[in-house]
Design a protein around this nucleic acid. Structure first.
Lengths: 200, 200
DNA sequence: CGTCGAACCGGACCCAGGGTCCGTATTCTA
DNA sequence: TAGAATACGGACCCTGGGTCCGGTTCGACG
């Protein structure tokens, strides 16, 4: 049952690939034309090795992404306020979205490459389920807000990598402004008074 | 300066391609593996013709999409309430998003193909600019809502084709429920009482 | 340390699919 | 109806993801 440990060279190569890819994505301005062969070459490894270790392009991207995301995940699941659990949903929802936004700003190319890779690879990535579940559970605690599941999706959609890139890179919106806007939006969603919402 | 009119056969072929592609996308369950050669064959035309008429894959997708979208556009810009101009922003914003959602539900494959095609082709499609501009101008009329531009992006993000597909096809959410949820979300955003929004 | 099998390496190779080219056919103009 | 302009179409090119397999490295064991 227990996976027997990989050979030393395999482990070394895996790490080399991860590091090389990380560096390449950080530098690349067009992540989609960063080829697998490029990555293999940069890591000093054959293409075969790369595919054996990660399955396919999406697999590599996912591995990279999850690795980078790890700290954020921990902070969100067990860290200090306002991100951690000891916070009211009204504050924690914007805080979580802010954390995700910052992450995507800091890892633009990678996030972009991941979300663009193949058919809706975003929605079947584990981290998406994680964020969605977490967000939904927060939203469920907010009185007068039904459809927590949908709302969670909608809020997460506002942090899509390509949107972030458009706003930050193409339109040049400064980081802090973007953060404020998203926080404002989230707060609005989370704190709207249902009595005001008359429409039909 | 004036574009001289295209030759008769060119026009006929263009139409043939459009129709064939339309039919194919409607039937296909995996829009991404519907190849250009397939479309050309179905239209009874050579690949060259297809590329000459539309430039590239994204161009064809855009043309198809815009054509289908035309009625919605008209309804939104000059139709009767609640979609048309003679409606208060509080009602019209949800109505517009609903129209977009319905459109994407009815043209799932096509929308998916378009949004997946190449680097952020969604955000440089004309219709995106149109919706965004329209939405923004509505939101600007709502007191207490700043960042109309960002809010418009965020709301539109909730209608992303891949999200719609996940909810409708993969999770099986019924159409009407989805519409209700989106409308509820939009209404919430649009009608939240700013006095309630304390966060710092 | 020597040996042997398993695990791994890497780059040559395969193939689909987007996009191009150019000799031929069609349409338009006069 | 001739000649130029335009369009046709499918053979062809090329990139890039993914596979394969002969050769190498690892490490367990004697």
């Amino acid at each position: 049952m227990a996976e027997r440990k990989p050979r030393k060279d395999a482990a070394r190569n895996r790490k080399a690939v991860l590091e090389a890819a990380d560096a390449l994505f950080a530098r690349a301005e067009r992540p989609e034309d960063l080829t697998m062969a490029d990555i293999a070459a940069a890591a000093g490894v054959g293409k075969g090795t790369l595919f054996r270790a990660f399955g396919d392009r999406a697999g590599l991207l996912r591995a990279l992404y999850e690795a980078r995301l790890e700290p954020v995940r921990e902070a969100a699941e067990a860290g200090p306020p306002p991100l951690g659990p000891a916070t009211s949903p009204q504050e924690r929802v914007p805080a979580l979205l802010d954390a995700i936004l910052c992450f995507k700003l800091d890892n633009r190319r990678l996030a972009l490459a991941l979300e663009e890779s193949g058919s809706n690879s975003l929605y079947q990535a584990e981290h998406y389920e994680r964020w969605h579940g977490l967000l939904r559970s927060m939203l469920e605690q907010i009185p007068g807000l039904d459809d927590a599941a949908f709302t969670a999706h909608a809020l997460l959609a506002a942090t899509r990598a390509d949107l972030v890139e458009r706003l930050a890179d193409q339109e040049g919106t400064p980081r802090e402004r973007l953060r404020d806007q998203l926080a404002g939006f989230a707060t609005r969603v989370v704190s709207s008074d249902p009595a005001t919402s008359r429409h039909d």
